[in-house]
Design a protein around this nucleic acid. Structure first.
Lengths: 125, 125
DNA sequence: CCAGCGTATTGATAGACATCAATACGTACT
DNA sequence: AGTACGTATTGATGTCTATCAATACGCTGG
């Protein structure tokens, strides 16, 4: 009895090693949540737009175009999906602010919103 | 008859304006697809891991920690979800290579894989 | 060895989404 | 006006996923 451990036995049962050097160990720290719930939902929506292989290939096709823009009609064949499906994906990208659309007569041209991508890129690191 | 239009009438019906300055207008260009299907699926999987507000807030909590790492037990309360749900999300992040785990006794500490985030950030721009 | 606690897994359920066929809408050309 | 074509929308369907309750796994202290 009376060993050194007894003095420690009344200490709170928190992770003993590598606890933060700050006074309060861990649980219940008043650290304000860095990313608010609305912000996280907004960000998640943008990432959700990128979370599809077809949409990534659409973006890839747009950015690799010499003009930086591609007619919607030229996007159906490369991605190997039906026209309604491609139209749906382009709408998702547009709603997320990742691409812009410009109608010229019958055709619709899509362009990557590089500013949005750059902003997103900075958010990551 | 014999108006200038007749000479053009036999031309292929492609978007007439702002067509690429290159000889071949657009359709059927032999442009190699910049992002292959397997690559796009792999990338999409990573973005899918980011496409959830809870996971974004988990990442945010990790990166704002002074140690750069947080015990799993300290992540349940801030995000306001059940323990199994948080564990599930952490697994998704881990499977995507976005966080690393280290078990210390009973506790598991999670850390952001900054290299992975940096790589992803560069992919975007 | 047993009890307690942190963590992960399983099972079930409700909601979201990708896909395509069919259809509607708009524009250009005759 | 009417046909043809590019694009968007609607409806239906199968798959995926976020969530939690219940449970199992693993480590620690007695």
């Amino acid at each position: 009895m009376g060993n050194p451990k007894s003095a420690q036995s009344k200490a709170p049962k928190v992770h003993p090693r590598k606890a933060t050097p700050a006074p309060k160990v861990c649980c219940g720290t008043a650290r304000d949540i860095p990313l608010s719930e609305p912000d996280s939902e907004e960000l998640a929506a943008v990432f959700a737009a990128l979370a599809d292989p077809v949409r990534l290939r659409l973006l890839s096709l747009l950015s690799s175009s010499p003009n930086g823009e591609v007619c919607a009609c030229d996007l159906v064949t490369p991605v190997g999906k039906s026209q309604p499906t491609v139209s749906h994906h382009l709408k998702v990208l547009h709603d997320a602010g990742l691409v812009s659309r410009e109608k010229r007569g019958v055709w619709v041209w899509y362009k990557v919103e590089t500013a949005k991508l750059k902003q997103l890129s900075e958010t990551l690191q």
